[in-house]
Each structure stands twice: as structure tokens, then as C-alpha cells.
Design a protein around this nucleic acid. Sequence first.
RNA 1: GUGGCCUUAGCUCAACCGGCAGAGCACUGGAUUGUGGCUCCAGAGGUUACGGGUUCGAGCCCCGUAGGCCACCCCA
Length: 434
Amino acid sequence: MTTYRAARGTRDLLPGETAAWTRLERLVDDLADRYGYRRIVTPMFEQVAVFERGVGEVTDIVEKELFRIAPRTDEGESWALRPEPTAGIVRAYVQHGMQTWPQPVKLAMTGPMFRYDRPQAGRYRQFWQFDVEAIGDPGPAIDAEIIELGHRVYADAGLTGVEVLLNSIGDLACRPPYVAELTDYYRARSGELPVLERDRLERNVLRLLDSKDPAMAAVNAKAPRITDRLCAACAEHFAGVRAHLDAIRVPYRLEPGLVRGLDYYTRTAFEFYVAGREGQQQALGGGGRYDGLVELLGGRPTPGIGFGVGLDRLLLALQEQDAPAAHGAEAGPTAVVVGADPDDTVARLRIATDLRSAGIAARAELGRRKLGKQLESAARDRAHFAVIVGDELGAGDVQLRDLPAGTQKVVALADLAREVSRAHAAHRHGVEKG
RNA sequence: GUGGCCUUAGCUCAACCGGCAGAGCACUGGAUUGUGGCUCCAGAGGUUACGGGUUCGAGCCCCGUAGGCCACCCCA
């Protein structure tokens, strides 16, 4: 049996799966480009303090899911693999003085994130996220742009039934009084709360609002809503976000229970859900505004907003919907060089090398198999052409066989690359037209 | 981190009551000398996840560990 295996919660993406994966990465790269979000790459690990401050010390992500790196020496620093991209990006914004750049600074990143969680389908210890941040714009128009971009990622990937859940969680002026009011409300009804929820009441009241416990439904229905308690500035901002979303026709559902538990998260909060996925992994992505974060990481007070898309879950959802994007067949080579003399690997390799130099996707059959097997393998690779090397080589010719068509003709070696390119292009043109 | 279900060839799965570990797909080769996807034949591939225990005998029963999945917790 296998001796070594990929670590728990991680997996290998094999060639059959990477085709769909590569297309998704290209799709998000192109979208970021089209929307003016420039690519940034930050390290996969940071000082623990970056995440403690940037994500929040009392969150599960930091309290129990942080992938800590054991320090090698007495360097005195304590590192962790990044559990999410925003903290590192904001750290880079501050470190490199991006406040002197034209604002807002719009950044995009795709890469692996790490959380020491108990794995499940769609929940991995190493998972990939596409992430976008706009730092330096208070909104509300940019909020709508960001949400629309996120929405488009799913639409362009071919995923249907994606819902935008939207809420505003206020700011430092209006949220503390609201939290106090909410705490009083639940305390007065603590007898009606399930035991688990009673613990959360003291830890993080806002979390009670999105409890999945059916017993909470009645209590939550009558709970005061943050959107009814927003200060004038926040209410105006929220109305602005909705007006902009309406103007660009992005459908959304107001979800008063959607929360972020930390002080520096402000105002706009949103998540992307896909209908028809029961269970816990239906959150495909989400984001929100963090007007207090840059300052918290040592910069000047600067507003910011962003979102992340879980690429693993997006692909999983596409597979569940049996969407074309999930299948991603790899393209076969344009030409495979085969030979009548199994031992003449020199001729096959040389001709394949020449084709590659001419920009053609070519594979040489370098094994010493008889011609029949070589052709069989080429056909199964869905190659367009087989270049058959045989006795004609003495006269400077090879056979060029169109595998799908089953036709074949003699071509001079000197004309081979030109002829393959021409015929391949003509064929693809015909396929696209037809 | 808590509870539950599961683990047999690379993949999908069989194996009666505890009694000789199998099939399909995939892979490699062959079917009279230089022509393919189909068909036929053959081969290779296993410490039944790992470690213990019970038994004359364990893939099957018991315990532990690891991994996967599900529900929590939380989130992407």
C-alpha cells in the first residue's frame, strides 16, 4: 500500500483535473484585468500578529484554525500560513506606502490559503481563493462594483442559482449600541435559547442571528435588526450601495442575519451562496468593507473593501451542476510523430523538435513500440495528425496522416511544419464555423 | 475541537455463516513483417488502510491509529 500520502486536508490536482482548474484561473485573471484590479503576490506566511490583528484575535480562524509554523531558531518571530488574503495584502499596502499611489489601489490575488480545520468535502486545509481588494475608496459605488465583479465570476464560470446575500453591519458609531441592545434582548429570553446558543451570547452575540438551530427562528424573527439601527451615515451608505446595485441590475437578497464579528469590519457585508447545495459548504465566497483595518495594521485611516471566491468550492459546485466548465477536456497535440522502425527514435525526436521550433504542439513517440501501437496511442491522445516516418525519409519525405479524417499524403520534410500549421488552422476554422 | 458512518488492485465495486481474494474499466503485450480508437487473447497489478487481539482458520468479529465522508463548530 502507499507509504507516503498527501497531508490531511490537502490533495493533488492531477492532469485530468487541472484543465478545468487552469481555465478558472484564467477566467478570474481576465476579469480582474478587465475591472482594473492589478495582480499582487504576497508571501504565503506572515507574522502571526498580522493575522491576529487583520483577521481578529477572537475569531475561530485565529483561535483554532491558524496553521502555525514552528520557529526554527530563536529568531523570536512567530509565523503562520495565511488563512485568508486580506490581512497580507493590507500589510503590503501599508509597508510599501501605497497610500501615495492614486487611490483607490485596486488589487487582485489568486493563491492557496491554509486553515487547520477538520476536513470535509469542499473544506480543505489548503484551498484556493481568488481575491480582490479596493483600498482607499469609501464607497458606496465601489461596493457595488466589487459585488458585481464577484457575481460575474460565477456567471462567467457557468454556475447558475448563485444568490447575493447583502447586509450592512454599521460602524463604530452605531454598532456598539446595537450590540448592547441585542445582548439585552437575548438575555431577557435566555430561557428560550438552546444551551449552545447561550454560550455564544456571551462570546459573540451577532452570531446568534445566523444560527441554524430551528429553535432560534422564532426568537431571531423578533430580534432588533441592525439595518433598523444604522446611524444616518451608515444608512445613507447602505442605500447608496443598493441604488448602485439596482442601477447595474445585480439581484441581491437582504439578509439581516449576515454578520462579521469584528470592530474594523464596517458597513457592507455580502456572501455568495448557491441554491441546491445543502450542508455547510454552500458559501462560495464573500466579502465586505473594512474601514478600520489599514489603521489597525499601522497605516493612516483608510477605507477598504474586498471579497474572496473559494475556487475549490466553485469547481465543486460546477461539477454538481454538471456544467461544461467542470469537464475541461485537455486539447490533444496537433501532431504525433510515429515511425515504422521502432528503434529509430532519433528521427522521431528530431522531427518533433523541428515542429516544436515552428510553434506546433507536437509529441514524439519515443517508446520502441510497433507502428500500430504508436498510432493507437496517438489516436487516443486525440491528436489531429500523425507524422509517419518510414522508408520515404530516404527521399526526404514523410507521411502526414489526418487521424480524424483517416486520410494521408506524402509531404516533404522541408514543408512539414508549414503544411501541418496550414491544415490544422483550416480544420479549426472549419470546426468553429460549423 | 465533538459525535457518527466508511476504507478490498490505479479507478468503480464483488467475495454465502468466519473457510483457496475476484470482475469491469484503465495499463502493457499479442492477433504472420509500414497504419489507429472497435473486437478477441494474454500479462502485470493485493501484507484486504496500518497496528494489535479473538479463533484450528479473519477481508468478514473485537480494540487502537490514520485517512475519507456526514452532522456540529466555523467558514471559502
